[in-house]
Write a protein that binds this DNA or RNA. Structure first.
Lengths: 155, 155
DNA sequence: GTCAATTAGTTACATATGAAACTAATAAAG
DNA sequence: CTTTATTAGTTTCATATGTAACTAATTGAC
């Protein structure tokens, strides 16, 4: 068999973009179920709560940047969270377009319940990896993320 | 700061499920654009073509298993591919419910054009990794996939 | 054989998502 | 100032997606 012929074979199960997608979807589905079941939150709502808890007073635009969500998704997640009373919005004094977001007391309580559960799920996911392997994973993901960055189009 | 307090902090950017999701979406978006731009295919249509090219005569159900797609997505992808003439369907002789799928000549031609392009995109994505790192990546992804398997619920 | 249960695949419906248009506020140019 | 351009965020609309209901064919129990 010639080299060209060999290279022309594509096995989906060994194809990195496919494997990444399947792995990510499996993990996301599990976590999404967890958040929804336990707290009635979507993944996007949880992401918004996570960064709002970490940086109170953050704006919707900034949330979008920190969470890799587009502004429509952010807007909808915020609307839902306000409706159920987990976050509140104050219009910025200095800029009337901007609103500043904060967890309410109820939101804080939920936040503090989810964080350990989420970290625990992550720990369980990684527990089959040795500490060295966890470091490797970190490094590899950073490299791949840089490699796939839309600033540096591969395709 | 107590241990409990330290553990309670969750930084989204360092949270594996989040990082996986962002990486996978970045890669998928790039590849989806490529397939669509060059060949007018969705990712799902491409997955169906990939396995049909690799295993002619495969059924829709089997495609679902090999591609981690649900049967509705498979059905729709097939419908689209038949419509544009990339695949054809023959009802199984032995089982009238089952249909067997094949690339048409046109489908074959496209398949043979895409495969090297897809492999090349994968190569570019991984080219920042040394050969050792590529092996590590393989191993780590296998372990994570096993760890996240829905058969072994973590959450 | 006949009837209930299973399987392959499609269709219908309800929800999720993203692009583009829109509103309101601020900034920048003259 | 006033008018033009930009920015923050929301709404609209068209498409994508998943669940559940459905159709058609096969298998299994009797």
């Amino acid at each position: 068999m010639s080299d060209e012929e060999k290279k022309t074979r594509l096995r989906l199960r060994e194809f990195l973009p496919y494997r990444l997608s399947v792995l990510s979807n499996t993990v996301s589905r599990g976590i999404a179920n967890l958040y929804d079941r336990e707290f009635g939150l979507t993944i996007w709502q949880w992401r918004v709560m996570a960064v709002t808890g970490d940086a109170p007073g953050i704006s919707a635009t900034e949330i979008g940047q920190r969470t890799a969500m587009d502004k429509v998704a952010v807007s909808r997640a915020i609307a839902g969270l306000i409706e159920v009373g987990h976050i509140e919005r104050k219009t910025s004094e200095s800029d009337g377009r901007r609103s500043e977001l904060f967890l309410t007391k109820a939101g804080q309580d939920i936040y503090e319940m989810i964080v350990p559960i989420a970290l625990d799920a992550e720990r369980k996911l990684m527990e089959t990896l040795s500490s060295d392997e966890q470091d490797q994973l970190n490094r590899l993901m950073q490299k791949l993320a840089a490699s796939a960055s839309p600033d540096r189009p591969l395709w």
